[in-house]
Design a protein around this nucleic acid. Structure first.
Length: 338
DNA sequence: CCTAACCA
DNA sequence: TGGTTAGGG
C-alpha cells in the first residue's frame, strides 16, 4: 500500500510525550486497517461481538485514543471521500489480494499451519462501510473531532497541517509527503518493546517524526521531484517502472530533472501522467470542518460498545475515566484544551 | 493493537 | 517491579 519511498526519508525517533499539546491529523483508513490486521487472536480471528460483527477497530480506537489523549496529544481522525478514478486499479488489486488471502487463510487453518494462517488472516482485512460508520459514532461519543475529506484523506490531512490547523499527520504510509505534508508521525503508539509474533525477537517501537523540508533538503530535490521519484517506484495511481526502486529512481530523477525526461530516456510511458502529477500537487480538499475536543458521552459509549458490541463495561469505564480526566473532566486541564 | 493478570 | 503472555469481543 502507498508508495515505497521510506528509505529515502529522514526519521527522528521521539517520545510520545514530545507530542504533548500537538494536534495530530490521523489517517483514518490507514489506522483502521492497521487495527483490523493486528488486533487478532493467536489463530488469526479478529475480535468479534456475539453476533459475529468484527470489533477490532473499535477496541483500537478506544484504547489508542485514550492513551494518546492521556499523553496530551490532540487527535483528529480524517476519513477518505471519493477516490480519484485513476485509483481504481489499485482498489481492484486490493480486493483481489483480499479474496485470495481469505481463501488461503481457510486452507492454512484446515492444514493446521498456524503461522501461514495468521499471515493470510491479516492480509484478508477489509475496512467496510459499516466499520467506518461505527468508528465515526465512537469518535463522536468520545468527543474526538473527525473530518470527512472530499477525496483522499491523506491529502486533506496534509492540507490541514500546511494550513496550521494540525501539527502532524499520523500515518504509517509516506503518501502524505507527496500531497505536501510538512510533518508526519509514524508508530503513534505507547512507547515500548514489542515482541514480533511467533519469533523470539523484541523490537523497540518508538514514534518517529519525519519532516518534508528536512528530507527534501537532505536529498537536494523539490517536492515535485519527490512525486516523480514515487511515480517511478509506484504509487496508488500507477504501477512502478520495472526494476526501479527508490535508490535508482532518485538517481534517475536527479540526473534527468523530472519524470518526463526519465520516461523519455527509458522509452516508457505512464498513463495520465500530467493529471496524476497534478493531483498530488493540487488535490481536492475542504475547509469545511470544526476541531473541538469535548467531554465524552459516557452513557453513549457504554451503549455502543457494551450494549451493542459486548465490550466489558468495567474496561470501558476505566478507559473513559482516563479519557475524562484528561479531556474536560477536570477544570485544571480544561484550559489547555479550549 | 491494548489491558490485565501472572510469575519471578 | 517488570517482563511475559493470555485474552479481549
Amino acid at each position: 500500500m502507498g508508495t515505497d519511498i521510506g528509505d529515502l526519508l529522514l526519521k527522528d525517533a521521539i517520545e510520545l510525550a514530545g507530542l504533548s499539546n500537538k494536534v495530530v491529523a490521523i489517517d483514518a483508513y490507514n489506522t483502521l486497517y492497521q487495527f483490523l490486521s493486528i488486533i487478532r487472536q493467536r489463530d488469526g480471528t479478529p475480535l468479534k461481538d456475539s453476533s459475529g460483527q468484527i470489533t477490532s477497530h473499535l477496541s483500537g480506537i478506544l484504547y489508542r485514543l485514550t492513551n494518546l489523549i492521556e499523553a496530551g496529544v490532540k487527535p483528529i481522525f480524517v476519513f477518505d471521500g471519493k477516490p480519484p478514478d485513476f485509483k481504481s486499479d489499485t482498489l481492484a488489486k486490493r480486493h483481489e489480494v483480499r479474496e485470495s488471502a481469505t481463501a488461503k487463510w481457510e486452507d492454512a487453518k484446515a492444514q493446521g499451519l498456524e503461522e501461514e494462517a495468521y499471515k493470510y488472516a491479516q492480509a484478508s482485512s477489509k475496512v467496510t462501510r459499516e466499520m467506518i460508520d461505527d468508528s465515526v459514532s465512537l469518535l463522536e461519543l468520545m468527543g474526538i473531532p473527525y473530518v470527512k475529506a472530499p477525496s483522499e484523506g491523506e491529502a486533506q490531512a496534509s492540507y490541514m497541517v500546511q494550513k496550521g490547523d494540525a501539527d502532524y499527520i499520523g500515518s504509517q504510509d509516506y503518501d502524505s509527503f507527496l500531497f505536501g505534508a510538512p510533518r508526519v508521525v509514524r508508530n503513534l503508539t505507547i512507547t515500548g518493546k514489542r515482541k514480533l509474533p511467533k519469533k523470539n525477537i523484541y523490537v523497540d517501537v518508538k514514534p518517529e517524526v519525519l519532516s518534508l523540508e528536512d528530507s527534501l533538503g537532505e536529498l537536494g530535490i523539490t517536492r515535485q521531484q519527490l512525486i516523480d521519484i514515487a511515480m517511478c517506484v509506484g504509487t496508488d495511481y500507477n504501477t512502478g517502472l520495472e526494476k526501479i526502486g527508490p535508490k535508482r529512481a532518485l538517481k534517475l530523477v536527479r540526473e534527468h530533472g523530472d519524470i518526463k525526461a526519465v520516461l523519455e530516456e527509458l522509452g516508457k510511458d505512464i498513463e495520465d501522467l500530467d493529471a496524476k502529477r497534478d493531483f498530488f500537487m493540487n488535490p481536492p480538499v475542504t475547509d469545511d470542518y470544526e476541531l473541538k475536543w469535548i467531554k465524552p458521552d459516557r452513557a453513549g459509549v457504554i451503549d455502543l460498545l457494551c450494549k451493542k458490541h459486548d465490550f466489558s463495561e468495567d474496561r470501558v469505564n476505566k478507559a473513559l475515566d482516563r479519557l475524562e480526566a484528561n479531556m474536560g473532566g477536570s477544570q485544571s486541564t480544561l484550559d489547555q484544551w479550549f
